[in-house]
Design a protein around this nucleic acid. Structure first.
Length: 411
RNA sequence: GCCGGGAUGGGGUAGCGGUGCAUCCUUGGGGACUGUGGAUCCCCGGACCCGGGUUCAAAUCCCGGUCCCGGCCCCA
């Protein structure tokens, strides 16, 4: 048997239905915040990623030559595509608030929360440099987490590249990369490793600690810090989630220019569930007008881990009815009855086998149906349906024309 | 790319050099019954990841590969 490719997934119905609901929740939340959905190609010229994304991502792309010898790749991230879309339409009314849920591909070793093919929600606001834009985009992220039921077990952490850079220049001048490195990996490093790194790079451990615990902010007067406070307060009043200012959030991506943020489970056991920030220069770098931008991405893999860890990865009750004909008269009648029920807006699963009533009930139960419509000669003659409640076993007969009254029962 | 740990029917498992057809549970398919039986009864499928090697003998030991789980790098 041919095996599935490493790091790729099959989604069987029982999983896919849950996934669809989650994506629907994410999309609906975006719309509630006034974001518009967009979509874009899954394959792009490799050039699109060559400029901005740097060496690392180039090594992690599924890239190949097409039949015309062009170098193309499956998209590993969304920002370059988004930037192209914005750059090539000068008539767009700013600010733009766009979101998409797409598949992405990265050729790397699979591990917890990381796969070679994954889905990602991207939500961005383009054309506003105001803190409102950052705050609103972060609020959307928090809102989605709440809607998914994990608002109480996750937290938002915000920081700012500008602020961190200034603090570094003031306290550890010339050590930007080194400070970024140790802050970014802080929770992954052991006490000894931190000490060793600090010593090796001549970083004052006390100063590093003041970045880590936030003490370095005490008494600091800085407009970027004020901005960060405003963002934090806005998000707290907008979604009522825990929001911490945390200077350990630096995020490795080169292009962030201001506020950066992440959400993770409170214990930080998992990878971050979403991450993003302000990237004011990317669109200009890709040939567009200078356009301030802020946004985040949220992958499906870590989200799934967190939902499962909290018992929220559950299939909703199957809504709809299974139509089980008993005899030939019932089979003939079932076509019309099913049609009537479907036109009433019900989900109707009509038997497609030659099985008897017993096996049909068995099947309906296994498929999770709460109600079965049993049809036989009697029902056909009376133009009625017998509705069997699979939970209680009780059964009621109603006229087909009055089946609309059942809808409230079945929804 | 690197480092651990794994891999036995669809799912979960037992066996860990030779003992009767690789165990048990579950699941799947078919049939009997034919207005209630998601029941009952009967029948049938289905596995040692792949390739080498050691051995009289390999699911079992060794080597390589593949995939899975986790970690590193990196996190777009």
């Amino acid at each position: 048997m041919v095996e599935r490719l490493k790091g790729f997934r099959d989604f069987y119905p029982e999983e896919q239905e849950i996934r669809s609901e989650i994506f629907a929740t994410m999309k609906e939340s975006c719309r509630q915040f006034g974001f518009k959905e967009i979509d874009a190609p899954s394959v792009e010229s490799i050039e699109l990623f060559a400029n901005k994304s740097g060496m690392e991502i180039m090594n992690q792309m599924f890239s190949f030559k097409d039949k015309g010898g062009r170098d193309i790749t499956l998209i590993p991230e969304f920002t370059p595509t988004l930037s192209r879309m914005v750059a090539s339409r000068k008539d767009l009314v700013k600010p733009l608030k766009w979101f998409s849920v797409e598949k992405f591909w990265r050729y790397e070793e699979p591990q917890s929360g990381r796969l070679r093919e994954f889905y990602q929600l991207n939500a961005d606001i383009l054309g506003s440099e105001s803190f409102f834009a950052d705050a609103e985009v972060i609020s959307l992220g928090g809102y989605i987490l709440k809607k998914l039921g994990v608002g109480d077990v996750t937290k938002l952490r915000v920081s700012s590249r500008i602020l961190i850079d200034r603090l570094i220049e003031r306290n550890l001048p010339g050590k930007r990369d080194e400070v970024y490195y140790i802050l970014d990996r802080w929770s992954k490093l052991t006490e000894e490793e931190r000490e060793a790194y600090a010593t090796e790079k001549s970083l004052n451990m006390e100063t590093i600690m003041s970045f880590v615990n936030g003490k370095i902010l005490e008494g600091v007067s800085d407009p970027e810090l004020d901005r960060l406070y405003k963002i934090r307060d806005y998000v707290i009043s907008s979604v009522g989630m825990e929001v911490d200012i945390d200077l350990k959030i630096v995020r490795g991506i080169a292009y962030y220019t201001g506020c950066v943020f992440e959400a993770s489970d409170r214990e930080e056991k998992q990878r971050s569930i979403l991450g993003g920030g302000r990237y004011d220069n990317v669109i200009a770098q890709l040939g567009g007008d200078q356009t301030p931008a802020t946004g985040f991405a949220m992958g499906d893999a870590v989200l799934e881990n967190i939902l499962k860890a909290n018992g929220l990865w559950t299939q909703r009750r199957e809504i709809g009815v299974f139509v089980a004909p008993i005899d030939q008269a019932g089979r003939d009648y079932a076509v019309r009855a099913a049609s009537v029920l479907r036109n009433l807006g019900l989900k109707v699963d009509l038997n497609v086998t030659d099985r008897g009533i017993s096996k049909q009930l068995d099947y309906a139960a296994k498929m999770g149906y709460q109600y079965v419509v049993v049809l036989g000669e009697n029902e056909a003659r009376k133009q009625s349906i017998s509705l069997k409640n699979m939970g209680t076993g009780s059964q009621t007969e109603v006229e087909l024309e009055k089946a609309g009254e059942l809808i409230s029962l079945l929804k």
